[in-house]
């Protein structure tokens, strides 16, 4: 495998001005299965594609509830995600303990970003190998953030991370402008269609897909297994097959 002279720890710069360890961590995000986050004026939706290592194992959990108003979809090292998720949950509860109100989404995202950044300049630290799509609701409405192992964070109208996410990104780029005024059902449909683009055999079903919704008067809820079927069913209608057929016929063109 290709190796670089300047990549043994995060405190060593490469002459090109790069921190290779951090970039490798970001590479881990691309290895994980994909997740999609979108938002309208009223809701934020996460979808994620779950993997199972073999027929005997269960599917790896991809979406975690953080609090009533917030949750994350992850791509990369699940173990790292769990540790970050635990931190987020504690922060949320602590905020609730002191103020009796939910923590504003961006403030918690900044906390996480600072935590990740701390790992990018300490010799004894390993950067987190996971990307988080954070969906949340606060005073200013629904939000979708992407939190990167580098310590960067970005807010999006629609975003996708993980393996083959480029296909989903192409789909989202084409449609995101219309998301703002969509009904919840249509928003979920778009999120799932985008997710479908990342699936190896173009198949998403109740077993390998997770959906999570948060919004006005809608506490963060994850839908799995039989509960997610209602959203999968949306996809089987004709109108959405546009994206699906494209995957089969013009994949090369899209990539």
């Amino acid at each position: 495998m290709f190796r670089n002279q300047y990549d043994t720890d995060v405190t060593t710069w490469s002459p090109q001005g790069r921190i290779h360890q951090v970039e490798y961590a970001m590479e881990a995000v691309k290895q994980g299965s994909a997740c999609v986050g979108v938002k309208s004026k009223t809701h934020a939706v996460l979808t994620a594609l779950k993997r199972s290592t073999n027929d005997m194992s269960s599917y790896q959990k991809k979406i975690f509830k953080v609090d009533e108003h917030m949750g994350i979809a992850i791509s990369g090292l699940t173990a790292d995600a769990r540790s970050l998720c635990m931190y987020m949950r504690t922060e949320c509860l602590q905020h609730k303990y002191v103020y009796e109100s939910p923590v504003p989404v961006q403030r918690l995202v900044i906390d996480i970003a600072d935590k990740c950044q701390g790992c990018t300049q300490s010799a004894s630290a390993r950067p987190y190998g996971v990307g988080l799509l954070v969906a949340g609701m606060d005073q200013t409405g629904p939000h979708v953030y992407y939190n990167c192992p580098s310590g960067n964070y970005y807010e999006y109208k629609a975003m996708t991370i993980g393996a083959r996410s480029q296909a989903a990104k192409t789909y989202l780029e084409k449609h995101f402008a219309s998301f703002e005024n969509l009904e919840l059902k249509d928003l979920v449909k778009h999120a799932l269609t985008a997710l479908k683009e990342t699936s190896q055999n173009g198949d998403i079903n109740a077993k390998n897909a997770s959906v999570a919704i948060v919004g006005i008067d809608h506490p963060f809820t994850t839908y799995d297994e039989e509960n997610v079927q209602q959203f999968i069913d949306l996809l089987d209608k004709d109108e959405i097959s546009e994206g699906a057929t494209k995957t089969e016929t013009d994949t090369a063109m899209q990539e």
Partner: peptide, 19 residues
């Protein structure tokens, strides 16, 4: 300073002072 459009509500401040 967060500049994120979110502000402390009167209730937040009341609860904080209680703590």
């Amino acid at each position: 300073a967060y500049d994120d459009g979110c502000n402390m509500t009167p209730r937040d401040i009341h609860q904080y002072l209680g703590r």
